[in-house]
Design a protein around this nucleic acid. Structure first.
Lengths: 214, 214
DNA sequence: TGTAGAGTGTTAAATTTTTCACACATTGAC
DNA sequence: GTCAATGTGTGAAAAATTTAACACTCTACA
C-alpha cells in the first residue's frame, strides 16, 4: 500500500488547483515550478515535492502542462466526479452554500436543504426546496447523498450528525461550533468561523503590539 | 524581543478557549492537562507546550484553574476587547456573519454592512443598516473600524481590499476566492470554503478507495 | 543532429513541530 | 507536620515538514 499523504499537502492542493485554473483562463499553456512559486509565494521545491506525492506530472526542460496538471489535481481531489450534498440548516449560511453556484460547477450538487423552521417549509433557494427535518430520513434513503453540510446551531449538531451517519453518510462538512465525535470511518471537515476570527484577532493585536513598541 | 509564536499554536488556542468555556459552563473549577487532553483528543504535552508559549498558567499538583486560564487565553486572543467590524457584501454569507450574535458576545461588533445592490439599500440585518458602497469611505473615516470582512464576489475583492487598506484598515477577514496581495503590515485571515470542501472531497474519495480495496 | 539551457524528480540537509521524560513544586489525606 | 500522589514546566528526543542541492532528462534553436 502506498504511504499516506499528509493533510498538510492535501490542504495545499486546492490552492494549486485554483492558480492553475486562473492560468488556464489566461491561456497559459505551460508553467515551471519556479514561475508558479513566484505567483503563489511558496517555494518551487514545495510545489515539486507536493506534486510528486501523486506522481510525476512534469517534464524536465519543459515544466508542467497547465491543462494536464489542472485535470490531474482535479482527479486527485475528486472534483468533477459528482457529489450529492445536503445542507442541514437553511439559515443564511445554509442558503449561502446553496446559492454558491461554483460548487455545482465542480460537481458538488446540493440536492436538499433542511430546516426545523416551519416558515421555510416549501420555500426554495435557487431550485432547491427547503424540507422539514422529519423528511430527512426518507429523503436520504431515496437519494444517494455523499456529503452533508451542517449549518445549524451547535445544540442539535451532534444528534443530527449521528442520525446522518446511521443513515450511511460518511462525509460531513461541519460548520457548527463543536467537535463531532463520530466513528472513525466518517470523514469530517470543520469550518469554525469564530476560531478563524480569533486567529485574525490575535494577529491583529500582535501586529499592533509590534508597531506600538517602535 | 520575545520569540514569535507559530501560527500552528495560535490556530489551536481558540479551540482551547472553546473547551474551557464549556468546562466553565459545566461548573468545572480546575482541570489538568491530562484530563483536557482526553477530552480534546490531543496530547497533554502539546497542551502544556502551547500554553507555556504565553506563560505558566498552571500549578504543579493542582492543574489549571479553568476560569483563570479561560480569561488568560481570551486576553491573548484579544477577545473581550472591542473590535469594530464591517462586512463588505450583504449577500447570504455577509448576512450570516451579521446575524451571528456570538461574535458580538466576544467583542466583535459589526457596525456596518455594505453592498452594491441598490435593492438592499436601507434594509437592515438585525439592527445593522445596509449601506451602498459609495458611502464606505465616509463611514470608515467617521467610525473606527478594526476589521473588514470581505464576502463579495472575488472580482471586486482586490480593488476593495486596496481601498480599505488605504483607509487605514489593517485586518481583513477574506472570504473571497483569491489571495489578496497587500502590504506586509496588513493582517489577512482567509476562509476559502471551496478549498475546505475539496479537502473533504479528497478525504472522502480516499476513504472510499481504502474500503473498496478490502 | 548537436548542444546549451531549462527544469523536473529526488535525495539529503535544515527547520519546525510534536512527543517524551522527568525534576520538582503543590496538594491533600492522615 | 509528614509524605505519597498529582501534575506542571521544561529540556531533550523523535517525527514531520520544508528547503536546498543537484544529477539527469528533455526542449528548442541553430
Amino acid at each position: 500500500m502506498e504511504k499516506e499523504i499528509s493533510q498538510a499537502v492535501i490542504r495545499r492542493m486546492p490552492r494549486y488547483y485554483r492558480y492553475l485554473g486562473e492560468l488556464l483562463d489566461d491561456g497559459v499553456e505551460r508553467i515551471s515550478s519556479n514561475d508558479l512559486s513566484a505567483r503563489m509565494r511558496v517555494t518551487a521545491s514545495q510545489i515539486r515535492q507536493d506534486l510528486n506525492n501523486f506522481g510525476g506530472f512534469g517534464q524536465q526542460g519543459y515544466g508542467y502542462n497547465v491543462k494536464y496538471l489542472y485535470d490531474e489535481i482535479g482527479n486527485i481531489l475528486g472534483i468533477n466526479q459528482r457529489h450529492n450534498m445536503i445542507v442541514i440548516g437553511a439559515g443564511n449560511l445554509g442558503q449561502a452554500l446553496a446559492n454558491y453556484v461554483n460548487f455545482e460547477k465542480r460537481g458538488f450538487v446540493i440536492i436538499g436543504l433542511f430546516d426545523v423552521n416551519p416558515a421555510l417549509k416549501g420555500t426554495c433557494v435557487r431550485d432547491i426546496k427547503v424540507r422539514m427535518m422529519d423528511e430527512l430520513e426518507v429523503f436520504v434513503r431515496k437519494w444517494p447523498v455523499d456529503i452533508a453540510a451542517l449549518t445549524m446551531p451547535k445544540e442539535h449538531a451532534k444528534e443530527i450528525a449521528n442520525i446522518l451517519v446511521d443513515l450511511g453518510i460518511h462525509a460531513i462538512w461541519n460548520f457548527a461550533h463543536l467537535d463531532l465525535e463520530l466513528p472513525e470511518h466518517v470523514v469530517v471537515e470543520n469550518v469554525h468561523l469564530s476560531e478563524s476570527l480569533m486567529q485574525l484577532s490575535y494577529n491583529f493585536a500582535n501586529y499592533k503590539k509590534l508597531t506600538d513598541k517602535k
